[in-house]
Structures are given as structure tokens and as C-alpha cells.
Amino acid sequence: MKTKALDQIKRYPGFFPMAVLCLFLLYTPLVIVMIYSFNDSPSITLWGGFSLRWYEDVFFGLEAAKLRKAAWNSVSIAAMAAICATTIATAAAVGMVRSGAWRGKTASFALLNLPIMVPEIVTAVATLIFFSMIGFKAGYATILIAHVVFCIPFAYLPIAARLEGIDSNYEQAALDLYATRWQAFKRVLLPLLAPGIISGFLLAFIISLDDFIITNFVKGAGVETLPTAIYGAIRQGIKPNIMAISTLMLLVSILFVTVSYFVGRNGEKKHEG
């Protein structure tokens, strides 16, 4: 009886339609692009029947080689940046969460999260200016370095959050039993921390794959990632093959989120159990 009354109090008329509207607004543009990527007609407005021709165009068409190169750059940079950022962030998380209280901890936290706080366009400008001043030639390496930097906080946050939730008695017990710090970390903390590290890695990977602004500034002439290649292509108008690439990238993103979601959930379950 009482719970029913509380239910009534909690509920607001109009909030459910708002939530549905929210999902509708979020998904409509994506679904539309997905649908039109299968449009047979080269006109991007009229529907000319179902076809896979634009996918064929992406993989075997005139720009296929260029796109493949861009995709390879995107994926290889994302993988390397995510590995570096995750390694650095894991060490930093242990250093922050398992080091008690010390002076400058707040400052250290602020520094770790600085790449999130500075607007992307400012990071882009600053990085471009810095590399140009020290005479570092813009290209693949500059993109990679910039990506490592802004991926660090994205990897750090889930790892630190996970670490906060792990009872330190585990590694303390290992240390009491004469494990070295490295053994205590590798054998005890690391397995417990794994879901956080995987989430952090996936997050960093997607963030790197997603980046346009910073990459656009620090890439040299001739080096393209998928977003910069797509941006270059749509300068001349949105063509159906762009919609096919978009759909493919959309599917990759959804796959990643789903994996990361289930890894996170399983991790939680195991930890509880």
C-alpha cells in the first residue's frame, strides 16, 4: 500500500514522453543515415531501392585505397595510444589511490585530468604551436603523442574508480606474506583491477578513434585518419559512400560499447560474489 503511494509521489506526468523524445532525438539522425547508406540511388534524397553498392564503393571503389590507409592509421594510432595511456594511467591510479594522503594530491589529480578540462581546440592549437616551435615534423608521430596525452584521463577515471572499490586488505595480506610490491600488484591487484583496465582501454581507444579536432591540427600533409578523411570528403557535399563509412564506424562503436558494458557488468558481479 505504502509503496504504491510512494510510486505515485515519485511519478511525474510528462517525464516518460520526455525520455522517449530524448531517445528519439538521439537515434533519428543515426538511423536515417544507416537507412540511406543502403539507398541504390546516387541522389541522397530520393529512395531508389535497397542496394549494397556504396559499401562496395567503400571497399573497392576509386577511393578505397585512400580510405583503407586512413582506417589503418586510425586503428593503429588508437591501439598504440590506448595501450600507452592505459599503462600510464594504471600506474598513476595505483600511485593516487593507494598512497594515502599527501601534500599536492589535489594538484596531481588536477594535472591528470587537465586534458579533459582544457577545451579540445585549445589543446589542438597548443600542441601544433609546440611541435612547430621545437621543429618536430607533423605527421603520424605527432598525432600519436597528442592522442596519448588526451587519452590518459579517459583511461585513468574508470581504473581509479575500480581501484577505489577494491579492499586494500587483499594486497596488504599479500605484502604481509612477504610478497614483493610487484608480486602483490601482479598477482593480487591486477586480476581484481582487470575489468577497470579493460574499460579504460576501450574508452581510450574509442576516444582516440573519435578525435577530429586535435588530429586535424597536428597531422601533417598527407597523413589522414578516418575522421579527417571523411571531413575532407564532405567539403564537397555528403555523398552516399560517406553514409556507408559512417554506418560501418557506427557499428564498430556500438560493438565496442556493448563489449565494454558487459565487461564492466561481469566485473561488478564477480567482485560482489
Binding site: P29, I206, D210, P227, I230, L250, I254, F256, V257
Partner: peptide
């Protein structure tokens, strides 16, 4: 998680 560029182009 969908690329911001793609979302903006879709819009």
C-alpha cells in the same frame, strides 16, 4: 560513443 563527426554529419 559514435564518432562526433559522424553524428554532426548525420544531423
Amino acid at each position: 560513443w559514435v564518432n562526433l563527426l559522424i553524428r554532426t554529419v548525420s544531423m
